[in-house]
Simulated scan of single mutants.
Amino acid sequence: MAKPKIVFFDIDDTLYDQNKLIPASTEEAIHRLQDKGVLTAIATGRSPFMFRNLRNHLGIHSFVSFNGSYVVYEDSTVYTNPLNDSTLHALVTRTRELGWSFAFVNDQLIKLDGQADEKAKESIESLKLPMPFPESDAHFIENHEVYQGLVFYGKHDDARFLQQSPFDEFRYVRWHDYGVDVIPNRGSKAEGIKQLLKKMGLTPDDACAFGDGNNDIEMLSYVGTGVAMGNAVDEAKKTADFVTTPVHQDGIYNGLKHIGLL
């Protein structure tokens, strides 16, 4: 198996540990990759503004964000896939009726549709964003493109309507007990990686990816070498080519060493 030419890293519980800190071994590993000429990129559900400091700190200039809906190569945007406006309006109307909190996210901002309930507060605060808690702007979708929605409901709440028209035009990917990403139906980190590799003239076999969550499953399957963190969900572990140690036990360093990149 040829060694990967580019490595994609998820952020939460992959680059970051549970305290939203980068383990020293992870930082060392990434800089060693870069010194060897291996390309490093991020693949995340987050918006670009949410991990700007992380990119600057690690010297990473290419990324897949919004679970594939906003792709950047060497600091230039190469692909975007915003949410359908009419379907988004319908979804917001329904969540208002249910009393569920909803947030709009683009590449620069996050705004709440109304006031945040406790589920929204707990979910958003878990991200430890480098910014104040989002403000409310019910008219945000009328003036901005939206690349991702955030809808806040529990695993036992009745969300069956999301699988019915027109709401089934979107995909719903849970990242927190109460937080769910709303992305285009064909959206995934794999689709974003596909767009970035096309721009670079690379194939999936040239790529490796590290991840831990439900939104990493397609990515781990798509690339030539998929590595699940030891702290990953079971389905990600089943999909990956192999499982490294947990993030706080030098997971990225050990995984890169296993595939011969360190």
Rank of each mutant, 00 (worst) to 15 (best):
I193D: 02
E145M: 11
G192R: 03
G149Y: 04
E191Q: 14
H139K: 12
R160Y: 13
F167A: 04
R171C: 10
D181P: 03
R174L: 01
P184H: 11
R171M: 11
H176T: 04
D168R: 12
N143V: 08
I183Y: 01
I193C: 03
K189M: 12
E191G: 05
R160T: 14
P166H: 06
D168M: 07
G149V: 02
G154L: 12
L196Q: 05
E142V: 06
V146L: 08
E142Q: 14
D168Q: 10
L150E: 00
G154E: 09
Y178R: 02
I183N: 05
I141V: 11
V180I: 13
H156I: 09
D168E: 12
A190Y: 09
K194N: 11
D168W: 06
K155A: 14
V182P: 00
Y147R: 05
N143S: 14
H156P: 00
D177G: 12
R171N: 15
G149A: 07
D177E: 13
A138S: 15
W175Y: 07
K194F: 10
D158Q: 13
E145N: 13
L196N: 04
Q148S: 14
G179M: 01
K198A: 15
G187H: 06
P166E: 07
D157R: 07
H139W: 00
V173H: 00
D177F: 04
S165L: 10
K155P: 01
R186G: 15
H139E: 12
E191R: 14
H156T: 13
D177H: 08
Y172D: 05
W175N: 01
W175E: 01
F161M: 09
R174I: 06
I141K: 05
Y172Q: 04
G149D: 05
W175G: 01
Q164Y: 06
V180K: 00
N143T: 14
S165C: 03
D137V: 08
Q195T: 10
S188M: 12
D157N: 09
G187K: 07
P184N: 15
V146N: 01
Q164H: 12
F140R: 03
F140D: 02
F152S: 03
F152W: 07
P184Y: 10
G187M: 08
H156Y: 15
K198C: 04
E191F: 13
N143Q: 14
G149S: 07
R171I: 02
A190N: 13
Y153G: 00
V180G: 00
R160C: 08
N185G: 14
V146W: 02
K194L: 08
G179N: 04
L162E: 06
L197Y: 09
Q163I: 07
F161H: 09
R160V: 09
V151W: 01
P166F: 08
